[in-house]
């Protein structure tokens, strides 16, 4: 499976907003609130727009001016963490 073409979306019980540059994630099922930084917030915002992982990496690299190879590893690790925490899921 090509991980770069994988598309993720936030889970149905998740509510998310970018407020004053901070990402606020609410997991309704367990009543948990998470706060993510500007980069994390941008990743979730792009996922909600239906952007694939490869496009997402491209957009984040442009927005934050970071090296793409390193970013790819970081984004995959981050998405995997969010998936384990039931914040995002793969689009079937």
């Amino acid at each position: 499976m090509d991980t770069n073409t994988t598309q993720y979306k936030t889970c149905a019980d998740v509510r998310f907003r970018v407020i004053a540059g901070e990402g606020v994630i609410i997991r309704q099922e367990i009543g948990e609130a998470l706060v993510v930084n500007e980069v994390g917030a941008s990743i979730l915002k792009l996922l909600n727009e239906g952007v694939s992982t490869s496009k997402l990496i491209e957009r984040i690299a442009q927005e934050f001016d970071v090296e793409e190879e390193r970013l790819t590893l970081d984004v995959h690790r981050y998405l995997s963490e969010l998936e384990s925490a039931n914040v995002v899921e793969k689009v079937a």
Partner: peptide, 10 residues
């Protein structure tokens, strides 16, 4: 940052 801190910031 915790949500409680963020709500104080808001």
């Amino acid at each position: 940052m915790q949500l409680s801190d963020l709500t104080r910031k808001f």
